[in-house]
Design a protein around this nucleic acid. Structure first.
Lengths: 359, 359
DNA sequence: CTGTTAGCGCTTTCAG
DNA sequence: CTGAAAGCGCTAACAG
């Protein structure tokens, strides 16, 4: 004999306070409660007040699963980043997460490891959860990933990159056929950043300047393009001074690359590393090897990661607005989720050359 | 006039392939499909095969929201960490995430900022999603957070810490009354680690040894306890040589603390920083100030974070098994979720003193 | 502006 | 071992 508690012999009861409990207690229908609680449509202010008070008297909390099932959308936002081992992406994640959470969204993180099939797999998994939106690093995605995104109809903002030459892009739109031709994105011009650093080094009188990169992601390659453009314009371009290493970026690798570069091309007078961890590693290696920076060779980095200002000598670098990117992208996504069109679908947040003593 | 597609004039149809589509196509009931797909109970192997083939012919994918609603549990696992700005926690997160994902669970991350009310808030939010399990950093939580956890009945594994003196703990269990007296956890003995580093420094002949800490979380304080114990046992304990700074840990702060320490107590012959970022900052500051390490003062750190082996001189530190902790904790949680009892509810993964040239 | 009604897609008793 | 039926808790047409 069961206890009296299961009066209504419910098939399966969870003990949770439900919407209809609130409705009953407030003497209204559950749709009214639903509407009142979500601030949807017009509901009599008095009713709203009553519902609100009853609902928190009973300790009602909406069930996200039920809500997702009924409404076909969740309050999840997926964010896809390449790695967790690069501070850059962690900063991005943190900023986006904070912004989204304060708007009531849950952030689901996926790590792609720069692998497009992992990315596709993650995308597929995430889409099952009917995310309200997606944040995804970069503009480069496999055709099938793009197709998934397009078909899903989930609003998406791309991070850290902008489409190349937006003018000609605008021209293409007229005859647009492909999806994602004009994606929402917030970032800065990687090409310009590469170019700017080249000009900084050139202005310092450097002539034999190395471009040293690892983890050759599309953004790195864009910086390389800008870089080449700048050097060519000054007749300083020398393809043998490009060191491209596909391995993951790290302090240790930076040290290693520095040693190799100095061994093979002792006449080099500056090195631009495409990420600060490499540059920091190089600075440390220089110290070990007794090579003076910037006298013997200047060293510059990219991103202005933690510690770059602490190095000895302090590292010249490009400060990239990653936290702002995370935040602005989250805001843009929030707008898209609400069905609004962002005033600036491609948001350029710029970058700064931070000239310190390593150059 | 609507197109013929809405034959059954469904109230709201989503176009998704559902369980009952599969059931129809396979000529069985949807409960059978459900059971077959989840490998639950005994289902005729032939049927399982048929269901499986039909289901992926149709491209069926289960809807997590519907599943969560019906079964009252999700495949989410929540992980709560204090910060994203300490590599330690990122490594933990990454390892746990990878392990959980390969077991089919979604990781939901929450950042508490070492703030117990944020922690409680996050816990509350997360619990709404009916997570299958939780991973939470540390053993120290507010009473209300503990109550939430206990009431939720969601299995939980604590990270990076172990209860003090487990022997006496075992004795308490007999008369156990409080919850969480014997929590599931995987970590190592912070106290022992502090003690071990003290002994390392003492063995190097150091006499005036500073303990320098920031972000004074409970684990740091445990290290301090072990540290004190070791120094006292050698009559080297001097309370004026403890520098405790509640600010967040960072390279810059490490440099600052180093300068202050050297100014105020020039006779100091060793400094143990409670996190590698501080120690790295100190090493860099030493270089700036022209103080030789380890000749003039030895410097040691904690955690063996990225870059510590690259510093000059390479940093002596305590290597903590954070990735293993993340992974093992995830495995333990997976067991708990399955209803199994882990063979070792308190898993001690140990630590290593990594003696490099800074001491 | 509010209530009624019919599901969202799945799991779970409960019988057979 | 399988099927029928009854929800999980909520939202969204559709009337009023």
């Amino acid at each position: 004999m069961k206890t009296a508690s299961s009066l209504s012999r419910n098939h399966r009861s969870t003990g949770r306070v439900t919407l209809s409990d609130v409705a009953k207690a407030a003497g209204v229908s559950s749709s009214t409660v639903s509407r009142a609680l979500r601030g949807e449509r017009a509901v009599d202010p008095d009713l709203v007040a009553r519902v609100l008070s009853v609902s928190d008297k009973l300790g009602y909390v909406p069930d996200p699963a039920a809500r997702a099932l009924a409404s076909q959308r969740s309050n999840h936002v997926t964010i896809l980043i390449p790695l967790l081992s690069n501070t850059l992406f962690v900063d991005l994640l943190e900023a986006a997460q904070r912004t989204l959470r304060s708007a009531g969204f849950q952030t689901l993180m996926g790590v792609t490891h720069y692998n497009s099939s992992e990315e596709e797999q993650l995308m597929r998994e995430q889409l099952l959860h009917r995310p309200a939106g997606m944040l995804i690093t970069g503009l480069d995605h496999s055709a099938s990933t793009q197709k998934l995104m397009a078909r899903s109809n989930v609003p998406c903002v791309h991070l850290m990159d902008l489409p190349e030459n937006s003018e000609s892009n605008a021209a293409q739109i007229a005859s647009a056929n492909e999806p994602l031709l004009n994606p929402y994105c917030v970032g800065f011009r990687q090409t310009d950043a590469g170019e700017a650093m080249a000009h900084h080094l050139i202005a310092k009188g450097k002539k034999r300047i190395v471009f040293a990169a690892a983890q050759l992601d599309p953004r790195v390659m864009q910086r390389l393009n800008g870089w080449r453009k700048a050097l060519k314009s000054k007749q300083l371009y020398d393809p043998t001074l490009e060191w491209l290493n596909p391995a993951p970026s790290s302090l240790a690798l930076g040290g290693l690359m520095f040693e190799q570069i100095m061994k093979q091309s002792p006449a080099v007078d500056a090195i631009f590393f495409c990420n600060d961890d490499l540059a920091q590693g190089a600075l440390l290696a220089a110290m070990r090897l007794g090579i003076s920076v910037p006298q013997q060779v200047a060293i510059a980095g990219f991103n202005d990661l933690t510690g770059s200002d602490q190095m000895w000598p302090p590292l010249t670098t490009v400060r990239t607005p990653r936290a702002k990117v995370g935040e602005a992208a989250a805001h843009m996504l929030l707008q898209l989720i609400q069905g609004d069109e962002p005033s600036q679908p491609q948001l350029d947040l710029g970058f700064d050359i931070v000239a310190r003593q390593s150059t």
